[in-house]
Design a binder for these strands. Structure first.
Lengths: 178, 178
DNA sequence: CCGCCATATGCAACTATGTGCATAATGGTT
DNA sequence: AACCATTATGCACATAGTTGCATATGGCGG
């Protein structure tokens, strides 16, 4: 599992509570990774049990108490070990492909509608990425600190992916018009 | 779940046994979808229990007996209903992005190695897709029957995806060299 | 004749992820 | 006073997917 390692990395970068990590996921959601607060709290618990994280309970006034998690030496080692292992390219299973595969059962018109719908969603995603770029990554890459370049490259992958998909959709629409 | 619907579509296209469907998955594996034989047999059972498929046991000589599954009217309807629902674009979570995100914890050199490794795998995948195209889809698309066009488009998406990734990798390698 | 391969099906256990619900403090809104 | 939003954490259950093991027939090569 990789969520485990992403949380490890987030906590390594900055000591955090489950709530804060969940918010980070919500903000970066889509162009990188997704996780619900349940998943986050559960993983934090598992990681703490395994000794890869430790936490201290912090009392607050005006807000409920919280648990601040920090990475341990063991956690750092586990992360580095995982990092050095080669990563399998993720399988990209798109249910829309099932619709292509089986379109003749239901009708090409309906497939066209499904494709148009998927296109609209993808266009919205790309627009959101472009807005993030315009807002946060408008300076030339050479001027960014290394950490920012790296995160920007993850956004660039998201954009490249959506653009490639949209070009494919153009081609598909052309074929379906015939 | 979508595997359910893919199996429904496969059985609708041609009455099949679990074994045959598993082989279809192995052959199409990667450019479309993946499933183990366990998953396939389990889904077939579930679908039959739900009345979306029915099966007849066929005795064979020289080979173990088999169950041949066919789609029911209910199954056809369930598939069509699913088809008409809009599909969420799948979240594309790539663990390599975690490595970009957290590279400074482990070192940029190691990230470069990981990127080179991922590139090699992606290049192999693209080469495999291109081989499939050369072998099975070498004629102009206009000359293909509709069903073949549609399946070819799923392969084209796989190729578009890998090419986009490789272009992104070029860009990333350039940035990491600085 | 022994082991391997292809055909054929399946259970059990585990991991991963998603959905729904529950709780609790405080401050602001209607 | 009732309700909602924000901060903060978590259990229980359901669904999806993976891994390991089990079983059975029969042909083929060594």
């Amino acid at each position: 599992m990789s969520l485990r390692h992403l949380i490890l990395a987030l906590v390594a970068a900055r000591e955090s509570t489950g709530y804060e990590i969940t918010k980070e996921f919500d903000e970066v959601a889509g162009f990188f990774w997704r996780a619900t607060h349940q998943q986050v709290y559960r993983e934090l618990g598992t990681l703490a049990d395994a000794g890869l994280l430790r936490f201290s309970e912090v009392e607050q006034h005006g807000k409920p108490d919280k648990k601040v998690y920090a990475i341990t030496a063991e956690g750092r080692k586990a992360f580095a070990d995982w990092f050095r292992e080669p990563t399998d390219p993720p399988r990209a299973a798109d249910p829309l492909m099932i619709k292509f595969f089986a379109a003749e059962l239901v009708g090409i018109d309906e497939l066209r509608r499904q494709l148009a719908n998927a296109r609209a969603r993808r266009e919205a995603i790309l627009a959101a990425y472009e807005a993030i770029q315009a807002q946060h990554y408008s300076e030339p890459m050479k001027e960014m600190p290394r950490w920012k370049q790296l995160i920007f490259m993850t956004l660039r992958l998201g954009m490249a992916r959506e653009r490639a998909w949209l070009e494919w959709a153009d081609e598909s629409e052309k074929v379906l018009r015939t």
